[in-house]
């Protein structure tokens, strides 16, 4: 793993709680403090009621596959050793979507993928400061 070469997120004032949550191996998502509509990715305003007040809640990390791609080509040198790797778009039970890799691809994992396949969130400690999400197939 050539982890040092990878692009790392630069948390902002908006996103800090999300990244801090991952670092503590918790999925912490943003929602509107007024109407409770969850949102991802973190941003200042609720698109449902225009409130600028937000709060954070702990989500389950359980979800189902919304779509996916299998990257056979690395467009960033930091991912060259990982190809082919699966990137999942997941409908979280908590009402938003996330994109994250499927933990280690074994031979016919890609052929097992289908819309609605249940997955579970895991935590990948990339550096001391940054933990990234990843998924494994549930069961």
């Amino acid at each position: 793993m050539i982890r040092d070469d990878r692009p790392l997120p630069e948390p902002t004032a908006e996103s800090q709680p999300y990244w801090e949550g991952l670092r503590a191996h918790r999925l912490v998502l943003q929602r509107c403090a007024a109407c409770k509509t969850p949102r991802h990715y973190p941003r200042p305003m609720c698109a449902a009621c225009f409130s600028l007040e937000d709060e954070w809640f702990e989500a389950s990390g359980n979800g189902t596959v919304h779509s996916w791609t299998v990257s056979h080509h690395a467009f960033h040198r930091g991912f060259k050793t990982d190809t082919p790797y699966v990137l999942l778009t997941v409908d979280l039970a908590d009402g938003v979507r996330m994109v994250a890799p499927l933990v280690e691809l074994v031979d016919d994992d890609a052929s097992r993928l289908s819309l609605g396949l249940p997955v579970v969130l895991e935590y990948d400690d990339v550096t001391d400061e940054i933990t990234l999400p990843r998924f494994r197939i549930d069961g």
Binding site: P7, P9, S15, I130
Partner: peptide, 16 residues
């Protein structure tokens, strides 16, 4: 937005 949340997990180009 995608640079913060999706590029770090391996989505780095339009194809992805």
């Amino acid at each position: 937005v995608v640079s913060e949340f999706e590029a770090p997990v391996g989505a780095n180009a339009p194809a992805q």
